[in-house]
Write a protein that binds this DNA or RNA. Sequence first.
DNA 1: CGTGTTTGACCTGCGC
DNA 2: GCGCAGGTCAAACACG
Length: 184
Amino acid sequence: MENYTLFLPFSSSTTTSASPVSLNMAPNSYALTDLEGAKGNGFLGLMREMEAPATSLNVDNNSQNRGFVGSESEGRLEKKRGEKKIRKPKHAFQTRSQVDILDDGYRWRKYGQKAVKNSKFPRSYYRCTHQGCNVKKQVQRSTQDEGVVLTTYEGTHSHQIEKSTDNFEHILRQMQIYSSSPCN
DNA sequence: CGTGTTTGACCTGCGC
DNA sequence: GCGCAGGTCAAACACG
């Protein structure tokens, strides 16, 4: 088994923020100490990158659902002209890992890869392969620190986790807690 | 043969 | 309007 060190600045009611959580996935585990985003307010291991309009941010409704907050299906075909685009909330977190792919228990299919401006590393796009599940994630290496992988999740898993990676499951729950509480 | 990856083309939003 | 960058599609390909 391998090990990740993942810093999650959740402030779930009882825990302190920015606590490292060990995951049994990656070959190397490092302490995540000084991210560029950490300047100023301390930490940016996990952040809500963007939110849906406040009215649609019904995170509490998902509390029984193990996964991430977000809305239902949205494809580019659904986008109607003149209609305001509703973006799902995205959740980004950083892990220090040699490998880009975090085995979080779900099955992902890669559907694209793009070169990113001002970065020598490409960004990879993944979609959950579970039928009816529209969760996407993007994986990209940090330009500042090549050892840091930035993963951005978008959407809600509409199904159970497919592998028994209990540790990550725990983290997912924590992320939900974090999501349902106001950010700062 | 089923499943996942690669990769170029295409679409869309945004800033100038 | 144009060009750029990000995001997605889908055919071809690789692999077990």
